[in-house]
């Protein structure tokens, strides 16, 4: 366990500046966006909607332009990119060093995932809670009325704050797992993948030269139509059902489960990788 924590701390130290710069950039961009909105509004009073949705209302100063609501977790979406970058960065760059420091592959992997999960939690709290509070507080300081009191300040009036944060966490875990697995697969078998791709292109060209193109295109179009009908009749309704608002938790849990499975599969993939 000490070694795993050591690896986690190592990744944290190595990526500290990347994380810090990205967070500062996110804060700067959010503030610039907010102030430019306020500047554009000029004689317009902004009120933060407790409902958590974009809306235009009229107040005593006339027209009101409503800022993008700070409770909608949009920062988390931005920071998701950072998590993906951190995942990809962590896959390759330090393996040789850690192997030289007598760290086993499973310790490397667990240490890396522990770091990424901690980062995911930290970034969700930052993007989903702290940054929105900061921007709302700033508006308050600037003299804009805050309807709904403390609750609006802390949650932006979002009654499902905890659920939304959890959903974002699940999506981050899913991204970490998938990107890590894809990264390791490409890293280990990139030559084979290139050969397969090349062979596929050659076969396709040969196949297109051999067949009667017009009849092939007709057949292909027919089968495409069949697939499209099947998709419209079966898949799309299923997807609509699955992605309904009330299914948001099962969706998130499915995404997280897929991420965890990818994390587990990534071990046998990276276990056989040579480090010289």
């Amino acid at each position: 366990m000490t070694t795993i924590l050591g690896v986690t701390k190592y990744y944290e130290r190595r990526r500290r500046w990347t994380v810090l710069i990205c967070i500062l950039a996110t804060i700067a961009i959010s503030l610039i966006a907010m102030f430019s909105e306020l500047h554009n509004a000029q004689r317009v009073m902004v009120s933060i909607s407790p409902s958590g949705v974009l809306e235009t209302t009229t107040t005593y100063h006339g027209y009101v332009s409503v800022l993008s609501d700070p409770s909608n977790l949009s920062y988390v979406g931005t920071l998701m990119f950072l998590v993906v970058v951190l995942t990809v960065m962590s896959l390759h760059r330090d393996r040789r060093f850690l192997v030289s420091l007598s760290v086993t592959r499973y310790q490397q992997l667990l240490g890396m995932y522990l770091y990424l999960i901690c980062m995911a939690i930290g970034l969700i709290l930052l993007g989903g809670v702290l940054l929105p509070i900061l921007t709302r507080a700033l508006l308050l300081v600037l003299g804009y009325p805050l309807k709904g009191g403390w609750d609006t300040l802390l949650t932006g009036g979002n009654a499902n704050m905890a659920r939304d944060l959890f959903v974002n966490f699940c999506q981050m875990i899913s991204s970490i797992g998938w990107f890590a697995l894809i990264g390791y697969v490409v890293n280990r078998w990139w030559k084979v993948l290139l050969i397969l791709m090349g062979a596929g292109i050659v076969l396709l060209i040969a196949f297109l030269n051999l067949i009667n193109i017009s009849s092939f295109v007709m057949n292909f179009a027919d089968s495409l139509l069949d697939w499209a009908r099947w998709a419209v009749d079966t898949v799309i309704p299923w997807l609509e059902e699955f992605f309904k608002e009330e299914n948001i938790l099962p969706q998130a849990l499915t995404a997280m489960a897929s991420g965890v499975v990818c994390m587990i599969i990534s071990y046998p993939v990276m276990r056989g990788m040579r480090v010289t």
């Binding site: 924590l5 050591g6 701390k9 190592y10 190595r14």
Partner: peptide, 26 residues
């Protein structure tokens, strides 16, 4: 502990980071 001839340390790592990693791992 193995000290390799070359390629052991990542190019952008600081000496202080190497020593902290060693403190955590050895």
């Amino acid at each position: 502990c193995v000290v390799r001839e070359k390629g052991m340390f990542p190019p952008h790592i600081r000496i202080s980071q190497v020593l902290k990693a060693c403190a955590d791992l050895y």
